[in-house]
């Protein structure tokens, strides 16, 4: 993977994070990637309605609140993507007949909201102390008009892009666990974006480890 080597110099947007920002919730994180900011609260395992209880695994609920506060169909779709991603990572069988709630609040959206929300969800889950199979990292890509693949596009680039991708990888084998794409693109562009994102996901995993190292020193 020579490509991976020179991508080490490639930059993701600058990430800043604070864990345990909310005093009442079991786990919370605020993450900014460039100018995009999300705040996530995780609560659980909780007691839930009998109709939602499952005897073999926990019930995961994801709520997405936009800046405007009015839920729309694309938001429900985002909820669904994040729920499926989190569900694959959380060891739900350890928490039967309980519910876990992940609440996402969008604070600023300058492109890459979905990948920011997924990364923030992972950090909030780490903070809550729920058992997970692996950590996951999301990276966004875009294809511009000339067919070039851009990693972590800016707001302007997202607006002008022909296609947009979001890839989520696990930390064990860097397998793709979620892929979400919109627009018109060629198969080659998809492959290129996938490999670029896979290499860039390393940076996100390093970032997670740095954050956990910082707070592990004080507990």
């Amino acid at each position: 993977m020579t490509e991976a080597a020179d991508l080490k110099e490639c930059k993701l947007k600058h990430m800043k994070c604070e864990l345990n920002v909310l005093s009442k919730s079991d786990g919370s994180a605020i993450l900014s990637q460039g100018e995009t900011v999300t705040l996530i609260s995780v609560n659980g395992p909780l007691d839930i309605k009998v109709q939602n209880q499952s005897i073999e695994k926990c019930y995961l609920e994801v709520l997405f609140c936009t800046k405007g506060g009015r839920p729309s169909v694309p938001d429900r779709y985002k909820e669904h993507i994040i729920r499926q991603t989190c569900e694959s990572a959380i060891m739900g069988s350890l928490y039967p007949r309980t519910g876990i709630t992940v609440t996402i609040q969008e604070l600023e959206d300058y492109g890459g909201l979905l990948s920011c929300a997924v990364n923030c969800a992972c950090l909030a889950l780490l903070n809550s102390g729920l058992a997970m199979r692996y950590v996951f990292a999301a990276v966004s890509c875009a294809v511009d008009e000339t067919g070039n693949v851009i990693l972590e596009p800016t707001y302007q680039e997202v607006m002008n892009a022909k296609a947009r991708f979001n890839f989520v990888f696990d930390s064990r084998n860097k397998n793709l666990i979620t892929g979400f794409s919109e627009g018109i693109f060629s198969e080659a562009a998809y492959e290129e974006a996938l490999e670029m994102s896979r290499a860039a996901s390393d940076l996100v995993f390093t970032f997670y480890r740095d954050i956990v190292t910082k707070y592990s020193n004080v507990i």
Binding site: L126, M132, R133, Y134, D170, S171
Partner: peptide, 8 residues
């Protein structure tokens, strides 16, 4: 003694 993440 290391800092660990899920999946390690």
């Amino acid at each position: 003694g290391d800092v660990v993440l899920p999946g390690d």
